[in-house]
Write a protein that binds this DNA or RNA. Structure first.
Lengths: 228, 228
DNA sequence: AAAGTATACGAACAGTCGTGCTACTTTCTG
DNA sequence: CAGAAAGTAGCACGACTGTTCGTATACTTT
């Protein structure tokens, strides 16, 4: 398999730029990104960074894709390793809270920050962020519905409402913790999630069989970053 | 009461600037505010706007105070007109959701947007936004505790957790609605809040006596804007 | 060896940013 | 009436923005 040395070099710098860009954007926002500052931080030329993406908007979109890979590596993928049911639902909650709490991005959840930043603006960046949010909501809902289909959640439970509540608790934990500091919000969110899931479980004594599966301490491990 | 014509004139323009500034900031953020654009929108000179606040940071802080007045006029003040207890707690939820849903600020809740924007940054603006968030959390918790002290919420209820959950549902409704459009998030949040409050109520049949009190259709009515 | 391509650089573009200085108008005080 | 005070305007500054251009280097393909 012959590899083009120029391409691997470009891919490496592109990756370094996006790694830095997603970190910055989680704190200062995607609009707070500046090509010049990015170039200075990485000791590259401004025009070099610019040429690699073509425009600032393309850089922002690439950063969103890159952050999506990191999110998947830390939240959704490890969750899918747990077999469907209430155990997977609990694992999802824990993986998500852990991803926020461990500050995979220095500013907390990348998509919470950028979602709030672009919520009321039109454009391609808004659409990309909104789509990522929708995808995760669907993922939560599907995970809950699986558990219901298996019979581990009561049939009369509104899974859309349950998913909304779990989503709300996670968002609030991230928001409160980053804004005010401290880990108390995560304790509250875990308690709330336990109540919600436990209250929806079929047996009054929820099956504590499968402990929610965490992820290693490694900060990041994005395998495939499609940063076109 | 003799009034200084120069002062009332300045106060009027200051107010016009802050009205515009809070609207813009709820969509584009406090960092997205630009003195030049503000001046152009209001047909004032850039230096005139600048002189009125002294610095951009002071403008941002004044905008936060102004938005705080609008928030109080729409959420906390009308809530306090309901007598303490579970009725006031329900009114708080409804007033808050209504304030977000009616888009008192075009970008949804001002403090959600700016809180997310400045959550991970240091400085006076962060502190002001965080303090506003803390004050509202305390307000929710106090309202719930009142209801518990009166005996309308069960004694074994953790009011801190209840307040956190209600706060989370409101935040999520605002976030989802602004980002994705539609009013379904408010329906879900109302359902969740009803479950939380109803489940914490002392009687299994919650007292539907006091209907949550809404606010008039008028968009804003800030009485006293301390815009120093 | 020649042609073509991708990365990266340096300089410069026009525009906007926050800020400071000066001058003028309006209003209040004495 | 004079003088002070507050608001507003005009102008210019240095710094930074995204973007464009021309060019040098490294690599692959012919």
């Amino acid at each position: 398999m012959p590899v083009d040395g120029r391409l691997v070099r470009g891919e490496a710098t592109r990756r370094a730029i996006l790694e830095r860009a997603t970190d910055v954007a989680s704190v200062e926002g995607l609009e707070g990104l500046s090509i010049g500052r990015l170039a200075a931080d990485l000791e590259l030329s401004k025009s070099g960074v610019f040429a690699l993406f073509g425009s600032k908007e393309e850089l922002q979109l690439a950063a969103i894709r890159f952050a999506g890979d990191i999110f998947a590596d830390n939240v959704t993928r490890p969750t899918l390793e747990v077999e469907p049911g209430i155990g997977r639902l609990r694992a999802l909650c824990e993986n998500w809270l852990g991803y926020s709490e461990r500050r995979i991005f220095p500013g907390g959840c990348f998509f919470f920050h950028t979602g709030a930043e672009f919520d009321a603006r039109p454009g391609r960046v808004h659409d990309a962020v909104a789509e990522a949010g929708t995808a995760f909501s669907v993922f939560i809902t599907r995970t809950a519905r699986e558990a219901q289909d298996i019979g581990e959640l009561r049939a009369d439970i509104d899974v859309s409402l349950l998913a909304f509540e779990l989503h709300a608790l996670g968002q609030a934990a991230n928001a409160d913790s980053v804004l005010h500091g401290g880990i108390e919000p995560y304790r509250l969110a875990r308690a709330g999630m336990r109540n919600r899931v436990g209250g929806a479980a079929s047996t009054s004594r929820p099956p504590m069989a499968s402990v929610p599966q965490g992820v290693p301490a490694a900060r990041r491990w994005p395998g495939s970053a499609s940063a076109g």
